[in-house]
């Protein structure tokens, strides 16, 4: 092998030694692609898995906001039908007792529900976007896309099922259906975000099934499921992941 001029008069000029050095260099170069420190490897794995696999920008504040919106809406609903929490009177009956007619119930429940949902979603989006800006995670990635699609399916199915029930003049299961399908929607989305959301899903489903047996507590179950549970979940997530971050 040709020894370069720079090292001609040094110890390295020994051709055998130079060959050896070249071979060693080759191995060092070829191993650049590997980790020398397992700790570094683990840290990289962790950051990669969190960056694109899961949607981590979901803010706990979004949950708290949604919960507060739900509680405000339910309070108005209590006042509208003039009932107290946990009275065990189903909303349909209470509404009839108050107004001697139930014609107004569908538009009222529908519009107030819609307004609550829109306000809750806008607020949730705001907090989540703010968080995503702070942490530097992208908001719209393959994880959030899959999450959205997977969540929309059970959510839309549940919504249509409620409308079908209304269509047949049946109001008793509205709370049960919305809670159960919302829980399923959270379970479906749970694969793409932090695991804790699944527990929220299980709670919503359990609550929904309870109110399927006791429809009189439908509106109370709504208050707990969409209000209290969201706030508890949101606070838990906020204090666990965001406050110190």
């Amino acid at each position: 092998m040709l020894v370069p001029k720079e090292i001609q008069y040094t110890k390295l000029a020994n051709p055998n030694l130079f060959d050896l050095l070249c071979i060693a260099k080759y191995f060092i170069m070829s191993s650049v692609d590997t980790y020398s420190d397992p700790q570094e490897a683990l840290a990289d794995i962790r950051s990669l898995m969190s960056r694109s696999g899961r949607f981590l920008s979901l803010s706990g504040l979004s949950g708290i906001w949604a919960g507060v919106c739900a509680l405000v809406a339910v309070t108005f609903a209590y006042m509208k039908a003039n009932i107290l929490p946990f009275s065990g009177v189903d909303y349909y009956t209470a509404f009839y007792r108050q107004y001697q007619s139930v014609e107004a119930i569908e538009p009222y429940v529908f519009t107030s529900g819609l307004i609550t949902m829109v306000v809750a979603v806008i607020g949730a989006l705001f907090f989540t976007m703010r968080r995503s800006k702070r942490t530097g995670y992208t908001l719209w990635n393959s994880a959030s896309r899959s999450m959205l699609i997977n969540m929309l399916v059970p959510l839309a199915a549940g919504g249509l099922l409620v409308i079908a029930h209304w269509y047949h003049g049946d109001y008793g299961y509205s709370a049960a259906i919305t809670l159960i399908f919302y829980g399923l929607c959270l379970l479906a989305g749970g694969r793409y975000t932090l695991d804790e959301i699944r527990y929220l899903g299980y709670c919503e489903i359990a609550l929904g099934l309870f109110t399927a047996f006791y429809p009189g507590y439908g509106i109370d179950a709504w208050a707990i499921g969409f209000g209290v549970l969201h706030i508890v979940y949101g606070m838990l997530m906020y204090f666990r992941y965001e406050r110190n971050a």
Binding site: D44, I45, L48, M49, S50, S52, G53, R54, S142, S146
Partner: peptide, 10 residues
């Protein structure tokens, strides 16, 4: 390893 890290999470 990076490719696999990305894949196992999604």
């Amino acid at each position: 390893l990076a490719v696999m890290s990305l894949l196992v999470a999604t």
